[in-house]
């Protein structure tokens, strides 16, 4: 005679799949820490900004001749 319940509960394949998911619990969805990227990866944007800065900056002031 069973010690826990007189009637065996009935489970479905979906119950078994749910239990499998609980057993094989995935890792948390936090992102990995950011990885360092070499400076060269941002070189194109940096060069563009530097060029724009040079074009838009006022010219070097010249001292008037006496």
């Amino acid at each position: 005679m069973s010690v826990y319940t007189p009637v065996r509960p009935v489970t479905t394949p979906a119950d078994l799949a749910q239990l499998s998911k609980l057993v094989a619990e995935p890792e948390s969805t936090l992102a990995d820490p950011p990885l360092s990227t070499p400076n060269a990866a941002g070189g194109g944007v940096g060069a563009l900004l530097l060029g724009l800065g040079l074009l838009l900056s006022p010219p070097t002031p010249k001292e008037p001749r006496r």
């Binding site: 078994l16 057993v23 094989a24």
Partner: peptide, 18 residues
């Protein structure tokens, strides 16, 4: 084990872990 029968041929990763 009777109520939740074991997978006879595990295929999915969760089934293999189980």
């Amino acid at each position: 084990f009777e109520v939740f029968p074991q997978a006879t041929e595990p295929v999915a990763p969760e089934q293999r872990v189980m």
